[in-house]
């Protein structure tokens, strides 16, 4: 896609922003090499530390502004876990909150121009989605034993079509990690690529006002998407967890 755009002095590299590069030079990327992935994940951690450790330092009954933001996040996810997955799912709250905060802050840090958005990589989202999938499956079998299989046996449907439904349910169950991860990575990647394409058009004088307007508009949309995708990933995790804890429809 870069080649066709190069004509006419335009240079589009909308995908370059996603390239993983070593931070300190060199070409080989070992599993331990500090890369831009490392940098932006570290910044994510710092942002979370700033909000949740430094921000809540006062432990005030009447919270400071930063503390009330931290409490807002806490309350949002805590309530989501309780409402969607039930009270007994609250022991998974720290894990779910970890996922939510990582995705949320990674998404928003990715909106900084010239930054690297870690959540636009399928490798990252797939690890999280598979982690959720494995956790949910293991918890389901540990809690319910073979009863967890009743998730696939739709007892409210007529007996004749239950086997068919079971096959469909089984397939949809195994597709979950795929859709779970591709949704987040795809949304982030697409948005950032579109931003880059619009920015590329700004090089043409005639189009530049339109291009800049487009960048602003898409950026606004991306701010929404960043928050919504973090929310969606988390709420789906809660839904899957609910299936594991209460498999009966």
């Amino acid at each position: 896609m870069a080649d066709e755009a190069k004509e006419g002095g335009l240079s589009f590299h909308p995908m370059d922003q996603f390239i993983v590069e070593p931070l300190f030079g060199g070409d080989v990327i070992h599993w331990y090499t500090p890369t831009n992935v490392t940098l932006w994940m570290a910044l994510t951690v710092l942002a979370i530390v700033a909000l949740f450790v430094l921000g809540t330092r006062g432990r005030a009954i009447v919270p400071s502004r930063i503390q009330s933001v931290a409490e807002l996040f806490y309350g949002l996810v805590h309530k989501m876990v309780e409402d969607v997955a039930g009270k007994d799912a609250l022991k998974f709250f720290p894990y779910i909150f970890t996922l939510f905060l990582f995705i949320f802050f990674a998404n928003f840090l990715g909106l900084i121009p010239t930054s690297f958005s870690t959540t636009s990589h399928i490798a990252v989202t797939a690890v999280m989605a598979i982690g959720v999938f494995l956790t949910v499956t293991i918890v389901g079998f540990v809690k319910n034993g073979a009863g967890f299989l009743s998730l696939f046996w739709v007892s409210s449907a007529p007996m004749a079509i239950r086997p068919v439904l079971a096959v469909i349910e089984l397939i949809s169950y195994f597709v979950r990690p795929l859709s779970h991860s591709v949704r987040l990575a795809g949304a982030m990647m697409a948005g950032h690529a579109v931003l880059k394409v619009f920015a590329g058009f700004a090089a043409i004088a005639v189009l530049s006002p339109l291009a800049i307007f487009g960048v602003v508009a898409i950026y606004g949309l991306e701010v929404l998407v960043a928050a919504i995708q973090a929310y969606v990933f988390t709420i789906l995790t809660c839904v899957y967890l609910k299936d594991a804890l209460h498999p009966h429809h």
């Binding site: 993983v20 599993w31 331990y32 090499t33 890369t35 992935v37 870690t118 490798a123 990252v124 690890v127």
Partner: peptide, 9 residues
């Protein structure tokens, strides 16, 4: 780049 990303994640 996958091992790198997964490790740091």
């Amino acid at each position: 780049t996958f091992p790198n990303q997964i490790f740091w994640l």
